[in-house]
Amino acid sequence: MYYSDVEKFVEAIYKQLGIQDPEELSISAIAEALNIEIIYSESISMRVDHFIVLPRSPLENRWQIFGHELCHYFFHEGDQRFMHSLFVDLQEHQADYFAYHFCIPTFMLQQLHVHSVNDILQHFPVEFAFALHRLEMYQNKHFTLYEKPVYYLAV
């Protein structure tokens, strides 16, 4: 299977941290290994320098938000309050996409031979809608690899 740059990055991070299986996924262990301090809040989430603020919410929600905020940590600079709204939208879209791959890594899906939402929920601490969307992403990518290419004539 062809891996996107995000999938390659996520796999490299996990391998660098010595994480190979879903049972090893832990916010505190990953944050400690990356030298990130986690702060818990009643309702907000954000990343500031080497701090990630997570809401006091169920683990599934916190895990998904942690993945989202890690994208900002790894790839984004600046204060969104002073950015054009289109740039903020781009960063948020990138962070959402990254979170799907960080919270449910492709290389782990392949190892587990995942075929259903329940398979994902059994192994990863995510919400049903998140698992469903990630499964669709995974299946769509896998399916398109086996489709015949369509060629268009340049006009």
Score class of each variant (00 low, 15 high):
100 Y>L: 09
10 V>A: 08
52 I>R: 06
133 H>G: 01
117 V>P: 01
27 I>H: 05
115 H>Y: 09
7 E>F: 07
58 P>Q: 11
37 E>A: 07
98 F>L: 09
74 F>L: 07
135 L>M: 08
53 V>I: 15
1 M>S: 15
37 E>C: 02
89 D>C: 08
37 E>V: 12
49 D>M: 09
67 G>L: 03
153 L>W: 08
64 Q>N: 04
31 A>S: 14
58 P>A: 07
103 C>D: 04
86 L>M: 06
52 I>S: 06
91 Q>H: 12
75 F>M: 11
107 F>H: 13
125 P>I: 09
144 T>E: 10
1 M>N: 12
42 E>D: 15
112 L>I: 02
120 I>W: 06
23 E>C: 08
91 Q>S: 09
25 L>V: 08
8 K>L: 15
36 I>R: 01
116 S>Y: 08
87 F>W: 11
39 I>V: 13
79 D>H: 06
98 F>W: 09
101 H>P: 00
147 E>S: 11
112 L>N: 04
98 F>H: 10
101 H>S: 12
95 A>E: 04
93 H>D: 11
3 Y>C: 01
132 L>N: 13
141 K>H: 13
137 M>D: 13
90 L>T: 10
136 E>M: 09
21 D>F: 15
7 E>R: 04
117 V>S: 01
123 H>K: 11
28 S>D: 15
124 F>L: 04
98 F>D: 11
4 S>K: 06
130 F>K: 00
145 L>H: 14
108 M>T: 06
27 I>L: 05
98 F>T: 10
107 F>C: 07
